[in-house]
Design a protein around this nucleic acid. Sequence first.
DNA 1: CAGGAATGTGAATACCTCTCACTTTAGGTT
DNA 2: AACCTAAAGTGAGAGGTATTCACATTCCTG
Lengths: 223, 223
Amino acid sequence: MSTVAKSRAEQGGVAGPHIAGAALRRVPVQQRSAERVNRMLDACAALLDEIGYAKLTTTLIAQRADVAIGSVYQFFGDKRAVVRALDMRYLDGYIERLSRRIANTTAEHWSQIVDEVIDEYISMHRTEPGFRTLHFGDIVDVHLLDSERSNDDVLTDRLHAMLSEHFPLGDERQVSLALTVAVTAGDALVKLAFRRDPDGDDVVLTEAKTLIRDYLERHIATG
Amino acid sequence: MSTVAKSRAEQGGVAGPHIAGAALRRVPVQQRSAERVNRMLDACAALLDEIGYAKLTTTLIAQRADVAIGSVYQFFGDKRAVVRALDMRYLDGYIERLSRRIANTTAEHWSQIVDEVIDEYISMHRTEPGFRTLHFGDIVDVHLLDSERSNDDVLTDRLHAMLSEHFPLGDERQVSLALTVAVTAGDALVKLAFRRDPDGDDVVLTEAKTLIRDYLERHIATG
DNA sequence: CAGGAATGTGAATACCTCTCACTTTAGGTT
DNA sequence: AACCTAAAGTGAGAGGTATTCACATTCCTG
């Protein structure tokens, strides 16, 4: 099935800690139900890819997942919760793969890590069905992982940690703001690239990287 | 009415040519119906402000506008069309006010015009009920004014025209791309500012202006 | 293998979107 | 003024969708 599903199964966490925490009405205990939950999410992703959010219905999700409509509501509070959980699964997978990427990288300059962050994000648009429709919380809401902070904020913190682990950075607050701005702008530009071209408009993607690098150059340089 | 309007359609419709052209099922001919259409849009804007898009219903719009549900469908093809029309009205108003602003400005540098563009956009977030929920086509779709081009593209063209009217710019294509990127990134950053703070986080807004100015500096300078 | 917990089910309920046959009004014509 | 047609306005009803819930089934533990 999906790459995400596999890597998750290997991890051991039946439905992922994030999903459990914030989106599920009830956490699946037995493996059979955990599998069903994942099947519903897969169905949701496929449908999102095929017909988009506007035409997505709970009945369709249930049918595609080969599950009774009641089972959907057994675990998800409402329709949006399904999409939210899916988005969390994306975010989870993203952070996981990014961590792995960066762990294997011998970056000599912080900009290399920034490139990895962007590349992995671009990669998700190309490989994860339904992701380009959702991004990180565009459609549902932007507070998936944490009700206090937006996904971009969470992402920003992650990035901040990864960067400072390898390189000395400037003032904490200032860097944090700069990263937030960079993530927000970068996110929007990648979306633009994929709106222009299903494979991601290379010209725009290149421009996005340049813009972000140049911007950060002037804000997180340690001097 | 709006400058674009005149150049675009000869109809001179009561409810704005944009709305008429792309979102209305039937153009209101008599004044009384034109007023009702506007009342429905007002209701839609207010509801968007109060309960958000997810909870918006056609029944609610009709009730708030003091109109029978049938009247809504007399002019709007479906629920999304109402929102789309509202968004067009926003865009129309934005371009009109921006044109007026710029006409009254004796800008000595292109960056001053860019600032006006951003400031007027920020202003809309503060003054137009419901606008912060929609922006330009976020929720419904990004092809409101023109099925071929996104709203940002239309905006970009407008900006391009305004700028080149006052200042010599570099290569046509290159400038166009740069403006598209700037508009996209700027849009996202303004949204971020208003997500952080209902009045618009000044720190982020300032940062947004800097980022855009610096970026454009490197792309549209005539040398 | 008994019994509670976890799951699975789908008919039923409530609410929505959108249509359409029909009534009313505007505004020009005779 | 009476008349006429197009434009407007209306709301019950058809067709869907989201969500619930009382009941059936499957696990799993003691």
